[in-house]
Amino acid sequence: MAEIVSPLPGVFYTTPGPDKPPFVSPGDTVEAGQAVGLVEVMKQFTEIKSDVSGTVASVDSESGATVVPGTVLVTVDEG
């Protein structure tokens, strides 16, 4: 299992915008480099990308949650 963590403090978003589908959901296949969410800091949005390919095991942080560096956002089952 690989944990995708927040590299910076801010607010985590699971969707690219209101009324948009989530970047990933449990059971989805992800590729290395694929966006799995956004972290917003002072109106600046940073895409959070997967470092590994595999299947999303869980989305560990809720959309709108405040995160700090190291907070687990998404867990991926590699393979």
Results as ranks from 00 to 15, higher is better:
V52G: 02
M1V: 12
V67L: 08
P9Y: 12
P22D: 10
P18G: 01
G64L: 10
V11G: 01
V74H: 03
E78T: 13
T71Y: 11
D19V: 00
P26M: 10
V11A: 00
V30M: 06
V5K: 10
V5E: 08
G79T: 06
S6R: 03
K20I: 00
E40C: 08
P21A: 03
E47W: 11
G64D: 12
V11D: 00
E31K: 09
P69T: 05
P18C: 01
L8I: 11
T14E: 12
A57R: 09
E47S: 10
I4V: 15
L8W: 07
L8H: 08
P16K: 02
Q34N: 09
G54F: 03
T15V: 06
S6G: 06
V56M: 03
T75F: 06
T14N: 08
E31V: 06
P69G: 07
T29H: 08
T71S: 15
V59L: 13
T55Q: 07
V11F: 01
E3T: 12
D77I: 04
Q44A: 11
E3A: 14
V36G: 01
A35D: 12
T66G: 12
V39P: 01
V52F: 05
G64W: 13
T66S: 15
A2D: 15
G64I: 06
S63N: 11
D51K: 01
P9H: 11
S61Q: 13
P26R: 07
Y13K: 04
G79I: 06
K20F: 01
V52L: 03
A32R: 05
Y13V: 00
E78Y: 07
P21D: 07
M42G: 02
T71A: 15
E47Q: 15
P22F: 04
A2P: 08
S50G: 02
V36W: 10
Q34D: 13
T14I: 00
I48Q: 02
V30G: 04
V74S: 02
G54R: 02
L38H: 03
V39L: 11
E3L: 14
Q44I: 13
T75V: 14
V67M: 06
G54T: 00
S58D: 15
A35L: 12
D51L: 07
V76Q: 02
S50Q: 04
M42K: 06
P16A: 04
M1A: 08
S25D: 11
A2L: 14
Y13T: 00
G54M: 04
V11W: 03
V41F: 15
D19T: 00
T14C: 00
Y13F: 12
K43H: 14
F45Y: 13
P9F: 13
T29F: 07
G27L: 06
S53N: 03
P18H: 12
T71N: 12
T55S: 01
A65S: 14
V30P: 01
G64S: 09
D19N: 06
T55L: 03
Y13D: 01
P21G: 03
S63Q: 12
A32Q: 06
S61W: 09
E40S: 13
E3D: 15
P26C: 07
F12K: 02
D51F: 05
V67T: 02
D60N: 12
L73W: 04
T71L: 13
E62M: 14
G33V: 09
G27E: 09
S25V: 07
L73I: 05
T66Y: 15
T15K: 14
K43Q: 13
D19G: 00
E47P: 00
A35E: 14
T15E: 15
V11R: 03
G64M: 11
V5A: 07
E47R: 13
V36N: 05
E47I: 09
L8E: 08
